[in-house]
Simulated assay, not measured.
Amino acid sequence: MEQDKALRDQLTKLMQGGQAFRPLDDVLQGITADDAGKEMHGLPYTIWQLTEHLRITLYDILEFSRDPDHVSPEWPEEYWPRESAPADQAALDKSIQAISEGLEAMVQRVQDPANDLYEAFAHGSGQNLLREAMLVAEHNAYHLGEIVVLRRLLGTWK
Score class of each variant (00 low, 15 high):
residue 125 S to E: 13
residue 111 Q to I: 10
residue 43 L to R: 03
residue 67 D to Q: 02
residue 113 P to Y: 08
residue 23 P to M: 11
residue 39 E to G: 15
residue 113 P to W: 08
residue 60 D to S: 12
residue 90 A to V: 07
residue 18 G to P: 14
residue 143 H to Y: 09
residue 94 K to A: 12
residue 51 T to C: 07
residue 21 F to D: 03
residue 110 V to H: 11
residue 153 L to E: 06
residue 69 D to H: 03
residue 158 K to F: 15
residue 25 D to F: 00
residue 47 I to Q: 02
residue 20 A to V: 15
residue 121 F to K: 04
residue 99 I to W: 00
residue 36 A to D: 03
residue 104 E to C: 09
residue 10 Q to Y: 13
residue 7 L to N: 11
residue 84 S to M: 03
residue 104 E to R: 12
residue 88 D to T: 01
residue 49 Q to W: 00
residue 1 M to I: 05
residue 11 L to H: 11
residue 89 Q to P: 01
residue 122 A to L: 05
residue 45 Y to A: 07
residue 152 R to I: 11
residue 36 A to W: 04
residue 154 L to I: 00
residue 18 G to H: 11
residue 10 Q to T: 15
residue 72 S to Y: 03
residue 87 A to C: 00
residue 22 R to V: 13
residue 82 R to M: 06
residue 143 H to F: 12
residue 83 E to T: 07
residue 109 R to A: 08
residue 129 L to S: 05
residue 111 Q to V: 04
residue 67 D to W: 02
residue 127 Q to M: 01
residue 20 A to Q: 15
residue 71 V to W: 00
residue 40 M to A: 13
residue 85 A to P: 04
residue 14 L to P: 09
residue 30 G to S: 11
residue 136 V to F: 10
residue 71 V to S: 03
residue 81 P to V: 02
residue 11 L to E: 05
residue 31 I to E: 04
residue 62 L to Q: 01
residue 114 A to V: 09
residue 40 M to S: 13
residue 130 L to R: 15
residue 146 E to A: 13
residue 66 R to G: 10
residue 33 A to F: 04
residue 25 D to C: 02
residue 60 D to V: 08
residue 46 T to D: 05
residue 143 H to A: 13
residue 91 A to E: 07
residue 39 E to W: 08
residue 72 S to Q: 14
residue 40 M to Q: 15
residue 154 L to S: 06
residue 32 T to I: 06
residue 126 G to V: 12
residue 105 A to W: 03
residue 151 R to A: 11
residue 23 P to V: 10
residue 151 R to N: 10
residue 10 Q to R: 14
residue 101 E to W: 00
residue 144 L to Q: 02
residue 13 K to R: 14
residue 98 A to M: 07
residue 78 E to W: 02
residue 18 G to Y: 12
residue 7 L to E: 14
residue 78 E to L: 10
residue 35 D to R: 14
residue 68 P to E: 02
residue 11 L to V: 03
residue 106 M to C: 05
residue 62 L to N: 04
residue 96 I to H: 09
residue 29 Q to F: 05
residue 28 L to E: 01
residue 113 P to C: 06
residue 137 A to G: 11
residue 7 L to P: 08
residue 97 Q to I: 12
residue 44 P to F: 06
residue 18 G to L: 14
residue 117 L to W: 06
residue 138 E to T: 12
residue 85 A to M: 04
residue 1 M to C: 06
residue 145 G to R: 07
residue 78 E to S: 13
residue 71 V to C: 02
residue 74 E to I: 12
residue 48 W to D: 04
residue 37 G to V: 02
residue 77 E to C: 09
residue 149 V to F: 07
residue 113 P to G: 07
residue 1 M to N: 05
residue 50 L to S: 11
residue 119 E to K: 12
residue 8 R to G: 13
residue 65 S to E: 01
residue 86 P to E: 09
